[in-house]
Amino acid sequence: MSNKMLLNKRIIKKTALGGILENPVFVLVLGMCPTIKASTNITDAFALGIATTFVLICSNVIISLFRKFIPDQVRLPAYIVIIATFVTIVQLFLASLLPDLNQSIGPIVAMIVVNCIVLGRAESFASKNSVLLTLIDCTSMGIGFTLSLLLMGAIRQGLIALNFSIFSTTAGGFLVLGLLMALFNFIMMTVEKRKMQKSRAGLNEEVE
């Protein structure tokens, strides 16, 4: 009984950290388009991150809730319709209550429906896991995505303010993302190295 509880806790912890360890932008390399387009300033980045997280959580929870009722053959069209519904709700909300924001990120919000993160998580996680786990996973992924966007947004906004106007263009976006990815890889590799060194030291201790 206690083994099962331990296992559950581990799974929950792993899922909750998924946003960082399996960061959708830097590790899974999903959801590229909005990352480049909406990261020119912090407001856009934050708004898009929240919008995507909303769609992610709502659609995946519903999919997870009804995962046993949706036949395999109509899996994809069903997921697409569910996701598209929530995206449309966000679009209607923006057009009605936040028209200024709608001017800047309207077309990008429309693309959430083809954001690989949403469909990808639905396919790989929500369709196979309980509602609670899906909720944790989506929240984590959503937060991870939003934080990545915010990071890029802050960097680009800062650089544009310093008069490096190139970073307001797509090329600048590619550049920042590419460099950030390299940085992320570097950090991950260093952490892995330290981990291996630690376990090797532990092994040596045991041997001795």
């Binding site: 053959q73 069209p77 519904t85 709700i89 209607l92 057009a95 009605s96």
Partner: peptide, 30 residues
């Protein structure tokens, strides 16, 4: 199976459209 597929898709479609129709009446574009 085929019936089930059609049924599920229809339910999803109807619920989605209904939800959006309601949202659309309340959220009039500014």
């Amino acid at each position: 199976l085929t019936l089930k597929c059609i049924l599920v898709m229809s339910v999803i479609a109807i619920v989605s459209v209904a939800l959006l129709a309601v949202a659309n009446t309340f959220l009039v574009p500014a």
